[in-house]
Nucleic acid binder design. Structure first.
Lengths: 217, 217
DNA sequence: CTCGTATGTCTAGCGGTGCTAGAGTTCGGG
DNA sequence: CCCGAACTCTAGCACCGCTAGACATACGAG
């Protein structure tokens, strides 16, 4: 039986190799350069082996995107620290209103603002650091399901990371909705900036303004 | 000389035909279906004539996108009416601080909110009504310059339409920056919703929340 | 150790893409 | 009427994602 295990290990190894190579190629030359032929050449196999691991190119993109979601979630967790918000793993997630809204007093507002700013900065930094990865996650068609029961764990985890931090500042709004909107704003900022639609210089000022709008009141 | 004029007219006519056909095809079957061959067949010419009008497919997408920007600008203008904001054409545009910030009193706040809401709704409606057009404008590579001196007039006009309405509610923030951020949020909302990243049901509630965040204070 | 088989990989090729060179035709001006 | 210029089309390039079928390799049974 050991021989089968060895083969399976090698297969898994090659699987990872494909994903890693696709990611590197995309990050260094853009997704347009990621063709099945080039990819096959890089991993030193012929194209058909790709199709023994993935149903098609879309699924390869999806695999890269999945890595991205996991890393993004980790980056956001790291940015806000294990601090005040509902921590990960200490329950099924915060029910709406556990440390209840209406916390718009002057006291801890500054701390909240700092945490949201750190979160947002982490998001923008991640996108800037891994543009091709971000494209795989959001721009390209990766065939991943989102707000759905089939949504893969890393995606849920990413959203949860946002939710945990933002729940505290959502005020009288439903935290889920609040998070969706804030996330959309971050995504819009990233997208338009990356596409050259916004002057690149004022990126941090725009982020400041956004965080302001979502942390006051 | 009349013959030359006639030819030029016919050429212009064919030019418009190409753009219109590309747009229809994209709107009915998606941009993937817009290939030079299909396009050529639809206009009843061979592919090479396309290249006598446009440098390549990207430029065709760009032409469609340009139409889109003009229509989007018009839709937003119509939505806010010729009302309170700085009207179009009555000067080179409002300088920052002409009817000065700090207007966060309770009085006209409601009216401002309504106008911003109408503007945002017009934007979202436009994107929903013309998904392929919106893709050409923002998702696809149309080769159009944006925040640049080479930015085509329709793009400037679209941004100006946003700016005119938002200047009044930007508070102590720079109106240009405020507009960029708000626009980004709208774009993010549209993008994520269209990609199935957000549950489609709560679209209007999300929009409400966004408008709230940008009109209070 | 040998052999049949089963697994795995590669070569070759399909229909499609954006784009272009050069042949062919049409049509206006002298 | 005929020549030349302007224009269009046929044919083809290199590349794409993807797949069928030939080929080799390595395993397990006798």
């Amino acid at each position: 039986m050991s021989v089968q295990e060895r083969k399976e290990r090698e297969r898994a190894r090659r699987h990872r190799l494909i994903v890693a190579t696709a990611r590197e190629l995309a990050e260094s030359q853009g997704w347009d350069a990621v063709t099945t032929r080039r990819l096959a050449e890089r991993i030193e196999y012929s194209q058909p082996v790709l199709y023994s691991h993935f149903r098609g190119k879309r699924e390869i993109v999806g695999a890269v995107a999945l890595e991205g979601f996991a890393e993004l979630a980790a980056a956001m967790r790291a940015a806000v620290g294990g601090g005040t918000g509902a921590g990960p793993g200490d329950g099924p997630g915060p029910g709406p209103g556990d440390d209840s809204g209406a916390g718009q007093g002057a006291g801890p507002g500054g701390r909240d603002r700092a945490r949201v700013a750190a979160l947002a900065q982490a998001y923008i930094d991640f996108a800037g650091r891994n543009p091709a990865l971000y494209d795989a996650m959001f721009l390209l068609d990766s065939g991943l399901a989102f707000a759905d029961e089939a949504t893969p764990p890393p995606l849920r985890e990413g959203f949860q990371a946002l939710l945990d931090t933002l729940t505290g500042v959502s005020g009288d709004a439903e935290p889920g909705l609040f998070t969706e909107v804030f996330w959309s704003c971050l995504h819009g900022l990233v997208t338009l900036t990356r596409a050259g639609r916004l002057p690149p210089g004022d990126a941090s000022r725009r982020l400041d303004l956004l965080v302001d709008r979502f942390t006051r009141a």
